[in-house]
Amino acid sequence: MTLLHLQNVTAHYGASQALFGVDLSVSAGEVVALMGRNGMGKSTTVKSIFRMVPSTGNIVFDGHDLHKLAIHQAARLGIGLVPEGRRCFASLTVHENLIAAARPGHWDVHRVTQLFPRLAERKTQLAQTLSGGEQQMLAIGRALMTNPRLLVLDEATEGLAPMIRQEIWTAIAQLKTETGLAIIIVDKSLSQLKQICDHAVILERGRSAWTGQINDVTPDVATRLIGV
């Protein structure tokens, strides 16, 4: 069953066009990698799902046209965003950050802190006092607290120490195997993505340039479209 379907999506920042026709499809339980070099439209694609940039084309989640819904309504349908740059609620504690987003379902504070034991240790600490990696874990935990059916991770491991990075990848893998959550991952690390993702969509100048099984991403494609 297709959960999220983007067809021929275009988006603009004022006069400059950033997306020229993105196609992307995610089924329930599927993990999709969204790749591409810097400035090719990965984050803009994520933003257009959440209507944070004006866009055209079809964006349908579980039968609902996302163009017609406010951001919070889309989130309530079951899309959880882990935004680029984390953006936790700075003056709330870790626990409060989680509670503020909570909606009933499988994920609660207990389960989130099981997934990220570091958060359990920092429960009463203000989010602004956390390290970058801990903030990232909190941002993922906060998105999980909304009990989404689709999780969107925008550059979740960017700028983090290798050890923390690995912890986050382990947690994402755990999410996949244990809960069957559908996930879109925007990231640059092809080797990590290959271990977790089923499909890949590679963007080139605002268009879906390559779509297929992630294991079919050949070194040639990787060099040409991702630059690795």
């Binding site: 919070h72 959880g80 965003l81 609620f89 003056s91 409060e96 987003a101 909606r103 909304t146």
Partner: peptide, 20 residues
């Protein structure tokens, strides 16, 4: 807490399903 969150970063609050 949700209100506090909506005051601090309205767009992020919306992205977790809160209606500021």
């Amino acid at each position: 807490l949700a209100l506090n969150a909506a005051r601090q970063v309205p767009q992020r609050a919306e992205a977790v399903g809160l209606n500021p």
